[in-house]
Computed example of a mutant assay.
Amino acid sequence: MLLLAPMEGLLDHSLRDILTRVGGIDRCVSEFIRVTDQLLPPRVYTRIVPELLHGSRTPSGVPVRPQLLGSDPACMAENAARLAELGAFGVDLNFGCPAKTVNRHRGGAVLLDEPELLHDIVAAVRRSVPAGFAVSAKMRLGYADDARAVECACALAEGGAQELVVHARTRAQGYRPPAHWARIADIRRALSDTVLIANGEIWTAEDAERCRQTTGCESLMLGRGMIRDPGLALAIRAAQAGATHADAAPEAVDWPSVRLLLLEFWRQISWRVAPRHRAGRLKQWLSSLRGRYPEARAAFERLRLVQDPALIEAWLFEETRATTTLS
């Protein structure tokens, strides 16, 4: 199973739509929905996860699981029950966000110093939703260090989490390589009956295989690797079947095809993003694509100082016509 990671400020429903169109992803997890001290109205959920209005699936049919972030067991439970009422494809609980603002308000990775609270949150959520409603959680290896990684994972599983995604770094380690996959293997040995999903530093199909071999996890969550290379999930599946990345789906990974994805992404953000922010959103993704496509590096340099949406749009249509003609 290959999951698309939640990435606050980047991987929203528009990019979920685009990336799941390419293929290879089995399920998505949404950006976190912040829960503090009240039951949120349905419009908050559907603003962040509009897929809830369409069977909790992207337009290409891939399920989306909303993610909650908070520290109050009763309030988290109440909001999870609301998600069940809205027809969500389960609920995911965030215990991995490293953002300072979030952590200062007792959310995300800072809770990894309180395994008992982790257990209580998951247990309260589990009690509040129907028996068949999936409850999963995402964690890092710890906050300042990974000394309590296994203890935290066990607390989540004992609380009732059916699946557990482990990002193989502590909050203190941020996103600096390497990912410490061997620590996920320690959790795997302690939780043989829980679905464990490995996350962190999976950029290629070769990385995916090494991660599986090291962690003992068949399932993986892909984040920055999918943003950089929209064909990564297909490449991983092809490698398992003995094919190369190009053999898997050349139309999904070559630059002309990525240009069409960029154009569709631009169309979507133009419908809902204020003009002054549109160029930034497109360049944010284009910047990530530079790691995989030389053409993206050239495009980013050309557009780096451009803020006018009309100029961005003219460039997109001009280049798309050019690449379509050449192909």
Rank of each mutant, 00 (worst) to 15 (best):
G225L: 09
H277T: 02
D186C: 06
A235Q: 07
A172V: 10
S257D: 00
A208N: 13
V166N: 09
V195R: 15
N199L: 08
I227G: 00
V258H: 09
A168M: 08
V273K: 14
C211Y: 04
A243D: 10
R224H: 13
C217M: 15
L232V: 11
W255Q: 03
R189M: 11
G231E: 02
E264R: 09
Q213A: 15
G200Q: 14
I187L: 15
A205L: 02
P178C: 03
P230I: 10
W203K: 12
H180F: 08
R267K: 11
H180L: 12
Q240N: 01
A239V: 01
G231R: 06
I236L: 05
G231W: 02
A172F: 10
V165P: 04
A249N: 14
R183I: 09
H277C: 05
N199M: 09
T194M: 03
R210Q: 15
M226T: 08
E209V: 14
R267F: 02
M226L: 12
C211W: 04
W181H: 12
S219K: 04
L261W: 05
I197C: 02
L232E: 06
A246L: 15
W203A: 13
A190G: 10
A274G: 00
A243N: 05
E201N: 15
P178H: 05
I197A: 02
A235M: 01
I227Q: 11
V195N: 09
P250R: 02
H180T: 01
H245C: 08
A168Q: 06
D193L: 04
P256E: 06
E218N: 10
G223V: 09
C211G: 07
R210E: 12
L191A: 06
Q240E: 05
A198Q: 14
W203C: 08
M221T: 05
H277M: 09
S257Y: 00
D207W: 07
H277G: 00
A249Q: 07
A190Q: 11
W181T: 06
A185L: 07
N199Y: 07
D193K: 02
H167Y: 06
L262M: 15
R267N: 08
G231I: 03
L261F: 07
E209G: 03
D207H: 15
A233W: 07
D186W: 05
N199R: 11
P256T: 06
T244P: 05
V258G: 08
E218P: 01
G242N: 14
A246Y: 13
A235T: 02
R189L: 13
V253Q: 03
L232Q: 07
P230M: 12
R210L: 13
L222H: 10
R276W: 07
A179D: 07
P178V: 09
Q240V: 01
P275D: 03
S192W: 12
L164H: 11
R224I: 13
G174Y: 10
V165M: 09
R189F: 05
P177A: 11
C217Q: 13
L261T: 05
G174Q: 07
V195W: 02
